[in-house]
Write a protein that binds this DNA or RNA. Structure first.
Lengths: 348, 348
DNA sequence: TTGTAAGCGTTATCAG
DNA sequence: CTGATAACGCTTACAA
C-alpha cells in the first residue's frame, strides 16, 4: 500500500520564492530572530507568503542547526499513578507553552539507563527526573545533561520537591490530637526520597510525643499501589494486638488498606483510623472519604519544568538549589477520635 | 550560569576517523543498512571504534536525511483517566520496542488542531487518535498524515476499537437476567463513538426485551469522570420514582454514582444495582466492588500502534479496515437481583 | 568493498 | 537591510 499521497512538503524555499526574497531572509523573519533587521515591507511579504502556502517550520531541520531539539525528557516511575499523572500534566503544560515537546519515559516499562540513552540520541535539551533514584545512578549516565529533579535529594542538580517531612508530621499531629497512641505505618520499600521523608516526618513527630511504632507495625510493601495496601492491612490485622491508627505513605496504599479493613469487618474510622498522602482526586470519592495530605502535584511538575527551561534557555536560576513546596492536611472521613475503650483483641 | 560543560558531541566522523574509514562507510555499518556490503573486518573496526568512544547516533540528523522522525503522535482526550493511561501504556511499549518515540498530546490541555500543527512541525511519522472526534475534523487537518484511530468510526482511516456495542449489551443482559426492569443510564455528552455505541448496545438489548428507558432517566453529563457521576446520581435520586438498575458509560461515572447513592442512604446493590464499563484497576477496590465490562485498554493501544507502524514502515496492512477487540462482563458487587418489592418511593 | 559528492531544511556568518 | 555561502550530522547514490 503506497503512502497516502506523500505530502509535498512546503519548505522555506517555497516561502522565499513566493515572497521574492532569498531563502535566508525568509528564515530571518520566520524564525523571528531577535536582532534581525528586516524591512517591514519585506517581513510582511514573507509572512503573507508563508501563510498563503501554509508553511510550517521543520523542527527537525531547525534542531540540527540550532543544536537544540526543543524537547525535554520526563522520567517517572509510573505515569499510570494518578499522582504522577498530575505531575506530568503540570510539566507538559509549561513545556508546551514554551514550544517544547515532552518525551515521557515510564520506568515501569523500561530501565532508567535505557531511557536516558534514547533521550540522548534524540538530543533532548534537558531532562526532568521524578523520584526514580537518579541519585543512585552512575555519574556518567547523566553527564552533560541538564537535569532537574522532582522529589529527590537535590545535591548535584537543582530540584523541586514537596515538603514530605511536613506531610508525615502533619498526619502524626492530626492523629495524636485525636487521641491515638497505637500506630502503624505502611509504605513502599522503594528507594524514593519523598517516601522516606514522609516516613521520617511521621516517626519523628511521634517520637517528639514520646511514642514509637513497634517494628511489627512498620510494614514495607513492594509498590505504592492499592493491591499492596490491601495486603499490608491483611497482615496487620492478622498480627496480635491492633493499632488504632495507620499512616499509609500514599493514597493508593490507603485506599487498599481501608478496603481490606472494611472487608475484614473492622470499621473505619470507628475501630481504626487511616490516613493517606497525596490527595489524589479519588481520595474524595472512596467511602469513607480519605483523610490525607495535599501535595501540589501539578505545581511540582510545572515548577520543575520552568526550572529546567530556565537553564536550557540560559536564563539564570533565581534561587540556588531546591524549591520546597508546602503541603496541607486534609482531614476527611477515615480518621476519628480514638475509640474510648481499646479495640477488642482479635480472636482466632 | 554557563551550560554544564557543553558535552563535546561525538559524531560519526569521530568514529570513522578512529576506525580509519570514510564517514559514509561508518554510516553504512552503524545504521546497519540492509543491503550494505562492508568487509567483516571493517565493520568490526567501526563497531569497536563506536563503542570505544561511546558513539550515539544523532536521531535529529538521521531524521533530516531519512525524512522520518521515528516519532509518533498520540492524541488522547485526557491521559489522566486510568483507562486512557492504559491505552497510552500499550502504545508506548510497542512504539518504544520499534525505536519510535511517542509525543503524547492531551486534548484536555490544548485543542486538537493545535496539537496536530505541533506534530506536523515535528515531522511525526504518523499519529494515533483516541476517541477525540477525529471524524469531525476538517479534512485538511489530517491531510497527508498517516492516521490510525482508536475507538472511533474508521471510515477514512484504519482503526482499532473495542466492541462497545457488546459492552452495552452485556450489561443489559446481565441486569435483565437479575430481574431488573426499571433502568437508568448515565453517560457523557461528548462526541465519542465508543460511548455512543455503549449506549446503543444497552438500549437495543433492552428494546429487544420489550423495555425502554424513559428520557428522564437518561442522563447526559459533561465529562466521564467521578464528580459527574455523583452529580448525575443526585439528580436521578431527586426525580420521582426510582430505577432499580443504572448503567454508567464508564467506571469513573459508576464510582461517582455509587458513592452518591450510598451517601444518600440508598444501598448498593440492595436498593439499586450499578454497572460501569472499562474495568479500570480501581473497580476492584471500591466498596462494593464494581460490576463492569472489561475493555482491553493496553491491547487497544498496542494494536493501534502496531497498525500505524506497519503503515509507516511500508509493510502491508493484513486486514483492511477496523479491528474489533472483544469485551467481557465482570460481575462483581454492585449488581444484584432486583429487590422483591419495588423500592419505596422517595419522600421529600 | 570503499570513498566521493550531494543533499535533507534550517540557521548563522558574513560580505555587499 | 539583504543575499551568498557554509555549516549542522547523517544517509544515499554513484564512482573508483
Amino acid at each position: 500500500m503506497a503512502p497516502p499521497a506523500a505530502a509535498p512538503r512546503v519548505t522555506i524555499y517555497d516561502v522565499a520564492a513566493r515572497a521574492g526574497v532569498s531563502q535566508p531572509t525568509a528564515s530571518l523573519v520566520l524564525s523571528n530572530h531577535p536582532r534581525a533587521r528586516v524591512a517591514l515591507a519585506t517581513r510582511q511579504r514573507v509572512l503573507d507568503a508563508a501563510a498563503a502556502i501554509g508553511y510550517l517550520p521543520n523542527v527537525v531541520a531547525r534542531s540540527l542547526t540550532r543544536r537544540r531539539s526543543f524537547a525535554l525528557g520526563l522520567i517517572v516511575p509510573d505515569f499510570r499513578s494518578p499522582f504522577i499523572a498530575d505531575v506530568v500534566a503540570g510539566a507538559e503544560r509549561v513545556a508546551a507553552e514554551a514550544g517544547y515537546a515532552v518525551l515521557l519515559c515510564d520506568q515501569s516499562a523500561r530501565p532508567l539507563a535505557s531511557h536516558l540513552e534514547l533521550l540522548r540520541a534524540r538530543q533532548i535539551d534537558g531532562v526532568l527526573i521524578d523520584a526514580v533514584g537518579a541519585a543512585t545512578l552512575p555519574e556518567a549516565a547523566l553527564a552533560g545533561l541538564r537535569v532537574v529533579l522532582i522529589d529527590e535529594p537535590a545535591e548535584r542538580w537543582p530540584g523541586v520537591a514537596s515538603d514530605a517531612t511536613a506531610a508525615g508530621r502533619l498526619v502524626a499531629e492530626h492523629l495524636l490530637a485525636l487521641g491515638h497512641r497505637e500506630f502503624a505505618f505502611i509504605g513502599p520499600a522503594v528507594d524514593s526520597h519523598a517516601y522516606r521523608l514522609r516516613e521520617r516526618g511521621f516517626i519523628s513527630a511521634l517520637r517528639a510525643a514520646g511514642l514509637t511504632v513497634p517494628s511489627a507495625r512498620w510494614l514495607r510493601v513492594s509498590a505504592a499501589a492499592v493491591a499492596e495496601g490491601r495486603d499490608a492491612m491483611r497482615r496487620l490485622l492478622a498480627a496480635p494486638g491492633r493499632p488504632t491508627a495507620v499512616f499509609c505513605a500514599n493514597d493508593l496504599l490507603a485506599i487498599g488498606a481501608v478496603k481490606q479493613a472494611l472487608t475484614a469487618g473492622v470499621t473505619v474510622p470507628g475501630d481504626l483510623s487511616v490516613a493517606g498522602c497525596d490527595d489524589i482526586e479519588l481520595a474524595r470519592y472512596v467511602t469513607p472519604e480519605l483523610t490525607t495530605v495535599r501535595i501540589p502535584a501539578r505545581e511540582l511538575g510545572a515548577r520543575a519544568a520552568r526550572l529546567l527551561l530556565r537553564q536550557v534557555e540560559g536564563r539564570p536560576l533565581r534561587r540556588e538549589g531546591a524549591v520546597l513546596l508546602p503541603v496541607q492536611l486534609v482531614p476527611r472521613g477515615t480518621t476519628a477520635p480514638v475509640p474510648p475503650t481499646p479495640p477488642l483483641a482479635q480472636v482466632a
